[in-house]
């Protein structure tokens, strides 16, 4: 039981993620989480604004069901399958983040300094989350996929467009983490 309650090592986790992809392919579908954002827009009536959202979104209900499951999975994992172990970050990372003002790196899944409801109530806090969400939603659709669609499914099927997209993910991520985040915090 201890093995389940402790964080899982990468060499177990990676293959398990591949199983998610494999199961969806076995069911005749493709692993891609960002498509759900397009579906949500379509359900909300965005088809009236842009043709991009005129498609049979009912064919995507299976993927929204995966989303519903993912939410439940997140709940189950934290409520029933976790102990109070702290994320085993590199000590250098912890010190760095503490110097930036993050009090307890790794004690939670996301920093309170960005996600607590108190921070959400501040203009800066709210703006950061909105900007981050906009970038993810815009970029992922422009690139035609996210980590699940490109990094996992696309690279597993050896597709060049996905390799280009993943390189883009890393260029953007490296710039944000190394050059922009230190300016924000």
């Amino acid at each position: 039981m201890q093995y389940i309650l402790n964080p899982w090592p990468w060499y177990i986790s990676g293959p398990l993620i591949a199983i998610v992809m494999a199961l969806l392919l076995y069911f005749g579908k493709t692993f891609g989480m960002s498509s759900n954002l397009r579906t949500l827009c379509a359900i909300g009536g965005a088809g009236k604004i842009a043709d991009f959202f005129n498609f049979k979104w009912k064919d995507q209900i299976w993927n929204l069901t995966v989303v519903a499951g993912a939410i439940i999975g997140g709940f189950i994992a934290t409520q029933y399958l976790s102990n109070d172990s702290v994320t085993n970050l590199n000590p250098a990372t912890t010190v760095e983040l503490q110097n930036m003002g993050f009090k307890t790196p790794g004690a939670t899944l996301v920093p309170d300094e960005m996600y607590s409801l108190d921070v959400l109530a501040t203009p800066k806090g709210m703006l950061l989350l909105i900007v981050g969400g906009l970038l993810v939603g815009f970029g992922t659709r422009y690139a035609g996929g996210c980590t699940s669609g490109h990094s996992i499914t696309g690279l597993s099927s050896l597709q060049k467009p996905s390799l280009i997209a993943v390189i883009g993910f890393f260029i953007g991520g490296l710039i944000m983490t190394n050059f922009i985040l230190p300016l924000i915090f």
Binding site: G132, V136, A165, I175
Partner: peptide, 18 residues
């Protein structure tokens, strides 16, 4: 793929979630 990817990367690293 490259531009969309970079924009997504900005957001991913900022909010820490895809």
């Amino acid at each position: 793929y490259i531009i969309g990817g970079i924009i997504f990367g900005f957001g991913w690293a900022l909010i820490g979630a895809c």
